[in-house]
Design a protein around this nucleic acid. Structure first.
Lengths: 184, 184
DNA sequence: AATCGCATGTAAGGCGTTACATGATTCT
DNA sequence: AGAATCATGTAACGCCTTACATGCGATT
């Protein structure tokens, strides 16, 4: 259903961006929930331009380095709005390779299982620390007062959800580790 | 990295299954974290057979309906074990189309945003109720005493994680809805 | 002058979904 | 008799990643 199309339209509805800018954004906050590589982004930008949902202006950076600054058109805004108001069912599967391994616990030794959980736990703790730092920065930017109408509200939503997601995962991992260790 | 290959090997390490059985399993517990359609499963079974990680026996169901019962080979078990002990970094992106929409909150009216959150909330509550019922059934099966060595341990892990995942999502949705409603 | 970041593209191949296609068996 | 479920496959198409490919600009 071409989610990347809407991701790009949404980003361009906030401000003008180059393909390179979009690539960078997918490595930041929004990248917790959606991302794409530059090799997918450039063809999609070309296609959206042909479809007239976006257009670009060529800008010279320095002496001759050209970059294309894309902006959304009225048709693009209408298309974005259609997607934003669509109600979709929640997905039945959210793929998680680690949980697939966990499902096969009976094919592992207890030591192997503990190793997997330990590693997952420490990786996710690192990630949570990083997310908290990001959130601190954001809250400082808005003087600790975020509102729906703040331009940073979208950032706040993804950061708070990402934090919750990691916190919930970490709690489950710790509970599971206790369950395994108590039994031996 | 051919995760479906390992999903199939893991399932066949528990018991013999037909392609149809595997398709059904992906609609149950494990389907919360991994799944595939039959159109992907049958070619993968064929490929794994050629690679000699699995083999099959043709069984006649009724009078002439043939089904292929697959089982894992020693090489298959070794291959599965290699994957199960591999430590992977946590993925930077876990795609979630709803959260992508949330990131674009500033392109929506407050009413549209509330509609989206309301709907997500009720869908996820339905799902959580369903997961709790599944967990009750499982706990009854094992007389309310689950251990690492129980054959159902993998089922327990995915069900408890899926419940946590939904609970965390629901809490975030409710907090976010409050945040929006308080401000008006 | 070398390295890193900015900037844009294409090609090949694998993964995944939807649709097409067929037939047997069981249940109501 | 009809519907739902069991059972297996292929084809077309879109999505996504890895690798190939090139060149400018800024910093050290």
């Amino acid at each position: 259903m071409r989610v990347l199309k809407y991701a790009i339209l949404g980003l361009l509805d906030q401000k003008e961006l180059s393909g390179y800018d979009i690539t960078r954004l997918f490595k930041e906050e929004v990248g917790n929930f959606w991302s794409a590589k530059h090799s997918q982004i450039y063809p999609e930008l070309k296609r959206l331009t042909e479809e007239e949902f976006i257009r670009y202006e060529t800008v010279i950076q320095g002496k001759k380095l050209e970059k294309k600054m894309y902006s959304i058109t009225e048709e693009g805004r209408a298309e974005l709005s259609k997607w934003l108001t669509t109600i979709d069912p929640i997905p039945e599967t959210t793929k998680d390779e680690f949980m697939l391994k966990a499902y096969f616990a009976s094919s592992m030794s207890i030591e192997e299982l503990k190793q997997q959980i330990d590693n997952q736990l420490s990786s996710r703790k690192v990630k949570l620390t990083f997310l908290k730092k990001r959130m601190d920065d954001l809250l400082e930017q808005v003087n600790h007062h975020i509102t729906v109408s703040s331009p940073q509200f979208g950032h706040y939503l993804v950061l708070s959800r990402a934090q919750d997601r990691e916190t919930s995962y970490i709690n489950w991992l710790e509970r599971t580790l206790n369950l395994i260790e108590k039994e031996q």
